[in-house]
Design a protein around this nucleic acid. Structure first.
Lengths: 140, 140
DNA sequence: GATATATTTGCAAATTTGTCGCAATTATAT
DNA sequence: ATATAATTGCGACAAATTTGCAAATATATC
């Protein structure tokens, strides 16, 4: 059960699983990445704005959520701990976002490239833009 | 000379290379990605805040600069037109953003991974997060 | 369960970021 | 040098994010 993992992560840091934290976690569960605006409005009357910012900041620090770059804005999604590691492909034509399976060799190479320059990689994010199969077939 | 390319890009759109635009371009030249805050303060007394926002928006539209989402905020850097293709490493501790040389093998593999799922990749963006050499040496 | 303790929340106010209209200024072509 | 169209700075807004603090709530202990 996902709530157990969440609880465990919090307890490990001597933090508690409060009502607002559970609500925010649930807003993210089984959903596509969401903007702050959307999270705030979906939690309206249940969780205060300030609490949402504080919670997302905490969740990110604990590796529970992840900020995703989509165009200019960022969106929040649960981290690899709750959904497998993956990348995104954005179609420039139809605008769809597809997920790409993590590829072990690619993942390794990414870490290697960073380590080579004396960095200690913890996580990464890869976004590919182009044309999806459908759109490539029938040009505009 | 970089200013010539900048001028050419502007002229092509019937726009002019003004003092503020040159100043902002110079603030970006040969520097790591910078936040708006930093740009605004570095340009203090020379260019108005509103002009900086308008100029960055214009530069982005013309493909002169590129916006990176880093944490809550974003940072601006010159596009691949002025600096070769590269990736970024963001230090979770000190907040610095470093550039990583593009690695031909890695680039190829990224395209291959996308092609394998029937996508036609055009561009991509890779952000690695972790600890930079300095911060890894002396933990918090 | 009830209680003590430390954490966490909601609220309201402050700060920071980003936008807009418009008169004054500046670049470009003539 | 001048006309014309683009561009800037300014001040006022509007939106996004942060902060301090008293009240509420979770957790461990009895």
């Amino acid at each position: 059960m996902h709530h157990d993992s969440l609880h465990a992560l919090l307890v490990k840091e001597k933090l508690s699983l409060t009502r607002p934290r559970r609500i925010i976690f649930d807003l993210l569960l089984h959903k596509d990445p969401q903007s702050m605006q959307v999270l705030i409005s979906r939690a309206a009357n249940k969780v205060d704005r300030a609490t949402i910012y504080r919670t997302i900041e905490l969740f990110e620090r604990l590796g529970i959520v992840h900020r995703l770059n989509i165009g200019w804005k960022y969106k929040i999604e649960l981290s690899d701990l709750f959904v497998g590691h993956h990348h995104h492909f954005h179609c420039n034509q139809c605008g769809a976002t597809h997920t790409l399976q993590a590829n072990p060799m690619l993942e390794t190479m990414i870490d290697t490239v960073a380590a080579k320059e004396n960095f200690s990689p913890r996580s990464h994010q890869l976004e590919i833009h182009g044309l999806c199969g459908q759109c490539a077939g029938q040009p505009a």
